[in-house]
Each structure stands twice: as structure tokens, then as C-alpha cells.
């Protein structure tokens, strides 16, 4: 077989398969997603009464104040930045990232040490998820124990009964898939939204 025929066949088959897998397939899925599941397809965004986007049901936010249930520590501050001082163009694209600290890295111990001290000062019993940074830096969840550990503080600051907060935590806990797979987690954004509504 001649080399010319071989090359022509390679080029033609590449282009045909490109149209099939890189044009027809993705655009079929895009159309399907936008028509049938437009909420999910566009990122499960949550809007306030005025229609402004306040977050995504799947993406965490950097809750740090005493009034809210706090999130896990994040290496990218949950892809937030100051719009007036965004030197790394974080707001242009959005980012994700992780510490990549090895278990033997002294920086990890230093960071956890200061996190443990901070939590203890706030009267929160440290749990693993509250001292370790997440994989994506956007983890929307904290463990149920981590949420319970913050009840006393929220109750004091917001003047809400503790058992009402416990109920909110239960309502916003996303359980295991089929009761078997994964770990239960409390969606922090949804919990804090409910907190704001119940207080208002």
C-alpha cells in the first residue's frame, strides 16, 4: 500500500471521527441539557428574590463570620476575590485547587495547629473536616459533627434556640446515595440561607 493512500486515509478518518465525537456528540448533549435539565446544565445556580446570583447549590462559600455556620478551610478562598484587586484574574475564570501537602510536610502540621487553636478559641471542638483543606477548595459540605459543634456559637450570636438549629441541620443534611454510598454532609450554603430566612 502506498504511503500517500495511508496518509489520506489517516487524515480523512481523523476528520470524520472529529465531526462525530467533537461536534455532533457534544452539541447533542448541550442541546439536551439546556432543554431538559437547564437548571443543572447551567450550574445549579441559586438566585435571591431580586434575581441576583448568590451562589451554586453545589459549590461552597467562604463562611467565616460568627453569624454563619463556617465552611472548611480552602486554599483558594472558594474562588472568591476582591473585584477591585484581582491580580491573579480569579474572577475572570474561577479557580479550584488543593494544598497538595504530603502527610509528612511540616507546613501541614503548622497550618492544622493554628486552625485547631482558632477553633478552640471560638469554642468549637475541631473535627477532621474543619482542619483539613478539601480536594477542590470548593467543598460545599461540612460533616454533621462539624455543624453540631457550631450550634452553641450560632445560638448565642443569633439568639436562636439550639434545638431549632439542630432541626435545620437535619433538614439540610444530604445523606448517602441509596443510604449506602458516600458520606453524609451538611450543605453549608443552603443551611446558612435557611438560617437567614428563619431569623428574618
Amino acid at each position: 500500500m502506498s504511503l500517500t493512500r495511508d496518509i489520506s486515509r489517516a487524515i480523512r478518518s481523523t476528520l470524520v471521527l472529529w465531526i462525530l465525537t467533537a461536534v455532533l456528540y457534544p452539541f447533542a448533549m448541550l442541546s439536551f441539557g439546556q432543554i431538559a435539565f437547564s437548571n443543572q446544565a447551567n450550574g445549579s445556580l441559586i438566585r435571591n428574590a431580586g434575581g441576583t446570583v448568590i451562589g451554586s447549590a453545589l459549590i461552597g462559600q467562604p463562611f467565616e463570620s460568627d453569624r454563619y455556620f463556617n465552611s472548611r478551610p480552602s486554599t483558594t478562598s472558594y474562588s472568591t476575590a476582591d473585584p477591585n484587586n484581582d491580580a491573579n484574574s480569579i474572577l475572570k475564570t474561577g479557580v479550584s485547587g488543593a494544598s497538595n501537602y504530603a502527610p509528612s510536610n511540616p507546613e501541614l502540621q503548622k497550618r492544622v495547629q493554628s486552625e485547631v487553636e482558632r477553633l478552640k478559641q471560638a469554642g468549637i471542638q475541631p473535627t477532621a473536616d474543619l482542619v483539613y483543606t478539601s480536594g477542590s477548595s470548593l467543598d460545599p459540605h461540612i460533616s454533621v459533627e462539624a455543624a453540631r459543634a457550631q450550634v452553641a456559637r450560632i445560638s448565642r450570636v443569633r439568639n436562636i434556640e439550639a434545638n431549632k438549629l439542630e432541626l435545620l441541620i437535619t433538614q439540610h443534611t444530604e445523606g448517602r446515595f441509596l443510604g449506602i454510598f458516600g458520606e453524609p454532609g451538611v450543605n453549608v450554603l443552603r443551611l446558612n440561607l435557611a438560617l437567614d430566612q428563619s431569623n428574618a
Binding site: 446570583v53 451554586s56 474562588s79 476575590a81
Partner: peptide, 30 residues
Amino acid sequence: LLMLGVPETLDGAAIATTLEGATQAIARGP
């Protein structure tokens, strides 16, 4: 995956104002 929440859109990053008032960029895509 789409039904379970994985995005499929050609829109760029969504900009959100978080509950605490920070500006968050939510990367999306197909």
C-alpha cells in the same frame, strides 16, 4: 451525570455575590 447536577453549558463563569458579600467566580462549561 447531567440529571445529577454536572453542568453542560457554553456560558462562561458565573459571578455570585456570597451571603457574606464576597465576590465568587463559579467556573462552568460543557
